[in-house]
Amino acid sequence: MLRVIDRYAFANRLRAVDPAQKGGIALGVILLCVALDRPIVGLMALLWMVGMTVGYGRIPMRIVVTVLGAESVFLALSVIGLVVSIGFEYPDQAQLALSLGPIWVSVSNESLQTALHVLSRTLGAASALNFLILTTPLVDLIELLRRLRMPALVIELMMLTYRAIFILLETLEQMTVAQTARLGYASWRATMRSSALLGSQLFIAAFRRSQALELALTARGFSGDLRVLPLTYVADRRLWWIAGLIVMSLTLAGWLV
């Protein structure tokens, strides 16, 4: 999933657009979803942001749905907790009640409404965040944080971590293939042993790589700061108009409906 998101973030129609603009829109929509506590606002935000991601960013619908689907799994688990009540006494105001021996499992009108509120608000906010992550590579977000005066140390750590994730993923895949080829995952016991070995070897590989990286950086004159050229972007005027339209429609829906 990480690689899919990263690939589309680097190859979409809004790639060159200033991350501050995209970040501002996403943040605005998230704040509206939180501030205007109406299910319609969340659902409208969901439609708008999915539409923007697919229609304007040219990210395939199946990718947007897959990412949203993955988030929905976690969301569903939380919502189930809100909807379903469990107790030893019969729930008076329950819409639906089921007895499992001495235990009553029930769903009330109130809990359904709370769940709907949470679900719509979260889906709206998640789709805004998805718009940002699917159209903006992490390198641009790091650049945005740099412009927002985030401490250099944090920026450097983010940059190195982002790079290390992909190197370690590659190493992990190579090690897994090597173990599989030697029946490392042929049984439950072998799987446990191979997984443990994989973890420790990955740690050693990461350590070795960090040493090699330090050598390479030193050879290029590293003196404590990872200084690189800032990236340049363009402002998309049409995107501002669409953003204005979204904010207006969400605000009106929050007040009127």
Binding site: R209, A212, R220, F222, L226, R227, L229
Partner: peptide, 19 residues
């Protein structure tokens, strides 16, 4: 892979000259 540390090619190449 031991040398490239930055997320983008342009930024990685710029590291040495800036230093």
């Amino acid at each position: 892979d031991d040398q490239l540390f930055s997320a983008s090619v342009r930024q990685d190449i710029s590291f040495g000259p800036l230093n």
